[in-house]
Computed example of a mutant assay.
Amino acid sequence: MSDLITERTPLVIAAEINMIKEQTEKVVLNNAVEVGRRLKEAKEMLQHGEWLKWLEESVSYTERTAQRFLLVFDAYGDQQPAALNAGAQTQRLPNMTYSQALILLGVPEEEREQFIAEMDIENMSVRELQKAVKDREQAFQDREQAFQDRDQALQEKADLLKALDGEKGKNTQLTKERDTLKTMAGDLQKSKQALEQDVEKKQLECDKLKEKTSYKSVQRMSDSLTVAYNKVAANKITFLYENMDKAFKELAYEMTKFASIDADVHAAYKKMVNDFLIKAMQERMGG
């Protein structure tokens, strides 16, 4: 009989305590679902504004505590039938503790059942489950980020292809414009050469015309100047002759008058005038 009794050691005692804790938390989970069920029922009966007062006065719950029970019921209430005595319930809840149930609230409802099925929750500690939920959330975020990166990459690729198509269109248009400009430049070069040749030809013709025109103009100008000079000279001679004739007539008149006054002086001036005229004719008019 004594051989069947297991030796009491701290390890054995710790294992017993942990088993009792686990069983207790499972009972707590069932009871928490039922408490949440009844809290929801009461809340639907109460008037607006009576809920918090009823919690405090009737069941000594804070709003936060009541909200946690309601969340547990919403998550797991449809997995067990309503019963006044939780111990008499047909157990259909997953084999997990109340703490594990709270942790699993962090998994979306539509994914929670699959997550529970994939995890060995019964043999997982609270810390291990927390890590698994956190890793699942991180994996979900990484996947969502990957999807966003993929969508962004696809959008950027589409935008790039669109931009490339636009650039191709621009390049095609620029190529056409470049070819058109080349053609225009060639035509302009030909026109320029033709104009330069025409200008050179006109310049030669102009130079020849200038040579002819200048010679004739100079000749005509020379002839005109000669005629004008001759006219001026003739006019000058006429003017001098007329003045000399007038002066000679006045001199002859005065000498005639003076002859009756003083014949000797008259004779002397007459001789002087005659000598002057003869000498002037000989020296200035070539004899």
Rank of each mutant, 00 (worst) to 15 (best):
T6A: 13
P10I: 00
P10G: 04
I13F: 07
A14H: 05
A15P: 00
E22V: 11
Q23Y: 11
Q23T: 14
T24L: 12
E25L: 00
K26I: 05
V27D: 10
V28P: 00
L29R: 02
N30F: 12
A32H: 05
V35W: 03
V35T: 07
V35M: 08
G36D: 00
R37A: 09
L39E: 04
K40R: 13
K40E: 08
E41S: 14
A42F: 02
K43E: 14
K43M: 06
M45K: 13
Q47N: 09
G49K: 05
G49F: 02
K53L: 09
S58F: 01
T62I: 05
E63F: 04
R64T: 13
R64Q: 13
A66S: 07
R68E: 10
R68D: 03
A75E: 12
D78R: 06
P81G: 11
A82V: 11
N95T: 14
T97L: 02
T97F: 05
Q100W: 01
Q100M: 07
Q100P: 04
A101S: 08
A101W: 00
G106N: 12
V107D: 02
E110Q: 12
I116T: 03
A117T: 06
M119P: 02
I121F: 04
I121A: 02
E122T: 15
R127Q: 15
R127I: 13
L129E: 05
L129A: 06
A132R: 07
E137T: 10
Q148I: 15
Q155F: 00
D159E: 15
L164E: 09
E167F: 01
E167W: 02
E167M: 10
N171Y: 06
T175C: 01
T175R: 08
R178G: 01
T180A: 13
K182M: 08
D187V: 05
D187T: 05
D187L: 12
L188D: 01
Q189H: 09
K190D: 08
S191M: 08
K192C: 02
L195A: 08
Q197H: 08
K202L: 09
K202N: 03
K202R: 15
D207C: 06
K208V: 07
T213R: 04
T213C: 08
Y215F: 09
Y215V: 13
K216V: 14
K216L: 13
V218F: 13
Q219N: 09
D223Y: 07
S224P: 00
T226K: 12
T226M: 11
V227R: 11
A228L: 13
A228S: 09
N230H: 09
F239P: 00
E242I: 06
N243V: 11
N243W: 05
N243F: 02
M244D: 07
D245F: 08
A247K: 10
A247E: 09
F248A: 13
F248T: 05
F248I: 11
Y253K: 14
E254P: 01
K257F: 11
A263M: 05
H266M: 04
A267C: 03
K271Y: 01
D275H: 04
I278K: 14
A280W: 01
A280C: 03
M281N: 15
E283P: 01
M285W: 07
G286V: 05
